[in-house]
Design a protein around this nucleic acid. Structure first.
Lengths: 209, 209
DNA sequence: GTCTATATGATGATAGAC
DNA sequence: GTCTATCATCATATAGAC
């Protein structure tokens, strides 16, 4: 039995998962900035405070590392949005639900931006086997949004001529694109969320007619 | 004076710019699929039907090639949208202008998808000097959209509380994200353009109130 | 304008000491 | 669990023949 607390073990680098987590954080940051192929295992190890060969104690290889980074990039956003929707009253309308989901997505997206941006940027560049592994995680998150929009449509609060698949893709595309320009120094993510939810709910023109 | 027509010279690979264009097309396709660092000059040369050393007759090196690919990815869309807007009557409203601009952006984006997708995917992964070179091209295209939205706001046809910078970024983000899933076999780009223009103009909820 | 050959260095992965 | 040493392979860029 360990004689050190969990934080102490993490600080000492002897936590069972401390090494693994340090490696993933380093990999996410480097993959985001330089792409998949440009990042050497030596560079990841260096950022994580170890030598190249030590990575193979925690992961089977480069594909194993990037697979974990890609999955975390989706799963953290998925968990945040799921939790935000669970906190809403059961009779919440589309405006309230959309705002909560958009705000949770953006807050998680921009808080874990090394993982989420790495996912958006390099998914299309990793080996096919790694892509396949991440697709299941992606589909699970897409279903959350599809269900949210379907429920609103069933309640008659959405315009009936919409293609909800296109709405979902446009919305997620616009949200994820914020990774390329958003700067916490200049804007509050909650302001961004309010503006984006309003934009998709109401559009830009003054009158509907 | 050449005894062959321009198409013949291009087909024979003896056009003054045929080699350069073949190299750029090959590079765009490979950069899009595998990322910047993953693509070797030998691979680009092979796709273009030559050997590695021959590239240096047309370009100074890898950064020169990727810079040209990134610039073309923006410039071709910019030119298409500019031409579409120029064809509109001078008294065209925001609905007509938005639809024309969205349709032209999507058509050019998806027609030159190797160049445009390479730009979206690898811009953040190329050396800083290459990024700087492409930023001027990006800013020029952003100004076109900023002017379009500003004119509509001046005419009072937009909701007055909008942050037009955010509207522009959300719209371009949603449009460019189509590169990751759009398939010409399953959808007409004009249908996509109509749905996206309508979505941003009118939003998704049934009533504005 | 394209070729071959080459200089110089970095890569992913592995083996085995401690 | 981390280290060092090493293998085989691949990279960009250059030089010079044709």
């Amino acid at each position: 039995m360990s004689t050190r607390s969990v934080p102490d073990r993490i600080a000492a680098g002897t936590s069972p998962d401390g090494g693994r987590e340090r490696i993933l954080a380093a990999a996410a940051r480097l993959f985001r900035e330089h792409g998949y192929a440009a990042v050497s295992l030596r560079a990841i190890a260096g950022e994580a405070g170890m030598q190249g060969g030590s990575l193979y104690h925690h992961f089977r290889g480069k594909e194993d590392i990037v697979g974990a980074v890609l999955d975390l990039g989706i799963q953290r956003v998925h968990a945040a949005v799921e939790a935000a929707l669970a906190e809403l009253p059961t009779d919440a309308g589309i405006r309230e639900s959309m705002h909560a989901a958009v705000a949770a997505h953006l807050e998680a997206l921009l808080s874990h931006s090394d993982y989420t941006s790495a996912n958006v940027r390099i998914f299309g560049q990793v080996p096919p086997a790694v892509q396949e592994g991440n697709k299941a995680v992606r589909r699970a998150y897409e279903k959350l949004w599809a269900d949210l929009l379907d429920r609103a449509a069933d309640h008659g609060t959405l315009r009936p001529d919409l293609d909800l698949r296109l709405v979902r893709r446009a919305l997620i595309g616009a949200l994820n694109a914020t990774l390329e320009w958003f700067d916490r120094e200049n804007m509050d993510p909650r302001h961004l969320a309010a503006a984006y939810a309003d934009l998709f709910l109401n559009g830009i023109v003054e009158e509907s007619a």
